[in-house]
Design a protein around this nucleic acid. Structure first.
Length: 830
DNA sequence: AGCACGCCGACT
DNA sequence: GTCGGCGTGCTC
């Protein structure tokens, strides 16, 4: 990694070599990139995309060179770079261009993008080390207590890391004390930049080359006198090496059943040599590919359509029902991309990256495919990074962050479960949407994007119908798979003997019993966690709400607590009405916790498990619960929408949706879209080959259009319904409304910002023609920044804010505590 | 991200 | 008075 400085003698800094400068990306949220000078002796070794060691303020960083140029900055005198860290660039120009676009589009710094893209072990920053000043002597009389403590430790150990000083002192006092110590010349500071990536090494045992001469070797063995154990080991070694070609130290010792001392003896006698070699941390799989399956006629036709569409359009939406075998299409397309000599990226939402899909891909692509997601450790990441950069790895299966890997020649990006909201990164910048970013990336590099989903996001579907993307439908289940029959149970028809017992209609009960009897499995879907979604005072109707969110509090029976499902605050159970003082509350509705309890009462023989946010905390919980269910060690799985992410279960033949009204009774169109997606996805879990299965939907509003669409499995109808029945459309294909939230802890400042925004947008409004999608982007990119600059001095904090674009909602927030002002602006030109 | 500097309220 | 919290500005 360290570059050589061997050309130093060829160039002197006084040489008339043209002055060279570098714009460097530092992995920090800096307002812009800064420029360093390249001293003459580095001019041969620097390249765009390489890491350089630079000093910024008092710290050293490994930054990445974005551009090299000869324009000397007029406003300041650039410092010199201190070192070139890479002989070869760590990223290609393609990545740098993508970073720039992400930074611009999602309003963050390129450094923040770099932070998200580059493995931690490649983006080092310095650690301060205090070095004892030998000339100081031992006179500690002019030091105070804290200074004395550090000085004493320093005198003993000669140097201290910052973290060690923090252990000695109260954390808040570290810097002032160090400052004093430096002033008093007790010590000085050294900034150390360390390469964190360490290759993994293994010790190989090789024969001293001298004994490659057969005669010499024979004589050595024949004339062997002492140490019979060593001779034994020696013979074993020769045997193994003949069979296997090479052998590592632990393997040798194990196979020869020998001790380290015996081996050491042979090494000391210079007969054998121990050699440390770098090895890979990644599993080594054979690099052969096997595509040992055939596509059905429907799949074959869809594949052909996709391939044709790529000739004219960059992006293709593959709209295929659950279990239609989309993955097999992907595998064919990946193989084809590799055959063309380009790389392929297969993206999945993190939660869907299960062992099952990983094994499946590895079976077909062996060592040509790498897996990449947030659970890999930093060293492994560096190795994957380098292998992708070199082109050794041809395909990657990963979560959204895999998009930022240094692909050399990416030819195909598959975005599976394209509608999944976890493609949008929310919290740390860059707040990018991996699907949209993939599409941009493809346009930069003539790659193709395949979006796959059984329930496409409405904006994707719109783009497909509008002709921006091509559209391929796959409406048939693969193999003998049949679509489940969907039955709606009208809860109004269920006799209301006991309101509480309406959880399961007689139809639902019969169906569950039938499934259990057939030794099949059941999924019960209720999209509310907890025990009781809200409690209501039976005297005055008061409902406990969260102090921060105005959201009703859900009762959790296991924890015996009330919880806000919006902000997560937990409250003790309230027994007294805050409005009238009564002690009588009614529990309203039911969540998964209660469903589980009722099932255990009603179906005593059945094994029940619950899958929701509360029951599966760690990632392993999710995996192991899925495994349990897969192995049929659970009969009934109760869960929230979590049950739809993950896998196809072979033995499920009944899916029950207990309270579809909870999904349907919203006015917001975006929620209808989600309701549809959820119901469609849940329905897709039912039925397989031999048994087409059944979906039972309990609902009061049986005539709800979304419900009817679910029954017909027709997304297009939903889409048209949404257009013709416009409601609150905060969304580009239809919407001219922009919803912006301003947040600041001083409400009047948020209001002021909102007012300025309104003025700006109104000025903008007269220029609008055509669809609103570009309008939103222009407003955001152009006006928002102007507005922030125009804010009064009093509101200067706003200019320091972070902006987050989520779909078309722009949230501006500063600190943890804030008040918000929402504005909804109609930018329709009419 | 760090770190310095300046402002303001809370204390020996 | 001054200590320490937080808000703000700056880094080639």
């Amino acid at each position: 990694m360290q570059s050589s400085q061997s050309n130093t003698s060829l160039f002197s800094d006084a040489d008339n070599t043209a002055a060279l400068f570098a714009e460097v990306i530092i992995p920090l949220a800096l307002p812009q990139n800064y420029t360093w000078r390249i001293p003459a002796h580095f001019q041969q070794s620097v390249q765009e995309g390489s890491r350089v060691e630079v000093q910024l303020k008092n710290k050293k960083y490994a930054g990445i060179i974005k551009t090299l140029h000869t324009n000397k900055p007029a406003a300041f005198e650039p410092r010199e770079i201190m070192n070139v860290l890479d002989a070869d660039p760590v990223v290609y120009g393609g990545q740098l261009a993508l970073w720039q676009w992400i930074a611009g589009y999602y309003m963050c710094s390129e450094g923040e993008v770099m932070n998200a893209a580059v493995p931690a072990n490649l983006k080092l920053s310095s650690e301060s080390i205090l070095i004892w000043n030998e000339e100081y002597g031992l006179d500690f009389s002019n030091l105070n207590d804290e200074e004395y403590l550090v000085a004493e430790a320093l005198e003993l150990k000669k140097e201290l890391r910052l973290s060690e000083v923090q252990q000695i002192l109260d954390v808040t006092h570290v810097y002032p004390v160090i400052k004093k110590l430096i002033e008093k010349r007790v010590c000085y500071v050294w900034e150390e930049l360390k390469e964190k990536y360490k290759p993994k090494t293994e010790t190989y045992i090789v024969l001293n080359p001298v004994y490659h001469n057969e005669d010499l070797l024979a004589r050595l063995l024949n004339e062997w006198t002492k140490a019979p154990k060593q001779l034994e080991l020696m013979l074993a070694y020769l045997h193994i090496i003949k069979a296997e070609g090479e052998v590592t130290q632990p393997a040798l010792l194990k196979k020869a059943n020998a001790s380290t001392a015996q081996l050491k003896g042979l090494i000391d006698k210079k007969i054998l040599v121990a050699e440390k070699r770098d090895t890979s941390r990644l599993p080594v799989l054979p690099k052969n590919m096997s595509l040992d399956f055939t596509l059905s006629a429907a799949q074959e036709a869809a594949l052909e359509k996709v391939q044709q569409s790529f000739a004219e359009k960059q992006v293709c939406l593959l709209h295929g029902v659950t279990a239609s075998g989309k993955t097999q299409l992907y595998i064919k397309l990946i193989a084809e991309t590799i055959a063309r000599g380009r790389q392929a990226l297969y993206m999945l939402p993190e939660i869907a990256l299960t062992a099952q899909i990983i094994r499946r891909l590895q079976k077909h692509f062996g060592g040509n495919i790498a897996i990449y997601h947030s659970k890999f450790n930093p060293n492994e990441r560096v190795e994957i990074w380098n292998k992708i950069k070199s082109g050794e790895i041809k395909a990657v299966l990963g979560a959204r962050s895999a998009l930022l890997l240094p692909f050399k020649e990416l030819g195909l990006i598959i975005v599976d479960e394209e509608h999944d909201s976890s493609y949008k990164q929310h919290d740390p910048a860059p707040r990018y949407h991996a699907r949209d970013t993939a599409i941009y990336y493809a346009s930069l590099h003539q790659a193709r994007v395949l979006l796959g989903s059984a329930t496409p996001a409405i904006e994707t579907y719109h783009n497909a119908l509008a002709g921006k993307y091509s559209l391929v439908e796959l409406n048939e289940r693969f193999g003998e798979g049949k679509m489940p029959g969907i039955e709606v149970v009208d809860l109004k028809q269920v006799p209301a003997k006991d309101k509480q017992k309406q959880m399961f209609s007689p139809q639902m009960k019969t169906a569950i019993e039938a499934s259990l009897q057939q030794k099949k499995q059941v999924i019960i879907f209720q999209n509310r966690r907890g025990y009781t979604p809200y409690m209501i005072c039976s005297v005055c109707g008061w409902i406990p709400q969260c102090q921060h969110c105005d959201v009703t509090l859900t009762y959790h029976k296991a924890k015996n607590k009330l919880a806000c499902h919006y902000c997560g605050t937990v409250y003790p159970v309230i027994n007294t009405c805050a409005a009238c003082g009564s002690h009588s509350f009614m529990q309203k509705n039911f969540g998964t916790e209660k469903v589980e309890e009722v099932i255990m009462e009603d179906f005593p023989g059945a094994r029940v498990a619950r899958m929701d946010y509360d029951s599966v905390k760690g990632k392993h919980d999710h995996d192991s619960l899925i495994k349990l269910f897969e192995q049929q060690r659970v009969d009934i799985l109760v869960g929230t929408q979590m049950v739809v992410k993950g896998l196809d279960f072979e033995h499920v033949n009944l899916v029950g949706i207990l309270d579809a009204d909870a999904l349907l009774n919203f006015t917001d169109f975006r929620v209808n879209e989600r309701a549809f997606q959820l119901m469609e996805q849940v329905s897709g879990r039912a039925g397989r080959k031999d048994d087409k299965g059944k979906v039972l939907i309990q609902v009061t509003n049986v005539l709800h259009p979304v419900l009817q669409f679910v029954q017909q499995h027709n997304y297009r109808l939903l889409y048209e319904y949404e257009i013709t029945n416009r409601r609150h459309f905060f969304y580009p294909p239809f919407s001219r409304l922009i919803h912006i939230t301003f947040r600041h802890k001083e409400k009047h400042i948020a209001e002021e910002a909102a007012n300025l925004m309104v003025q700006g947008l109104q000025a903008f409004k007269s220029n609008i023609s055509g669809p609103a999608e570009p309008v939103v982007n222009r407003v955001r990119n152009q006006y928002l920044q102007d507005i922030l600059l125009k804010l009064p001095k009093d509101a200067a904090t706003i200019s320091n804010c972070k902006m987050q674009l989520h779909q078309q909602v722009i949230i501006i927030h500063t600190n943890k505590r804030y008040r918000s002002v929402d504005i909804i602006i109609d930018v329709d030109p009419a």
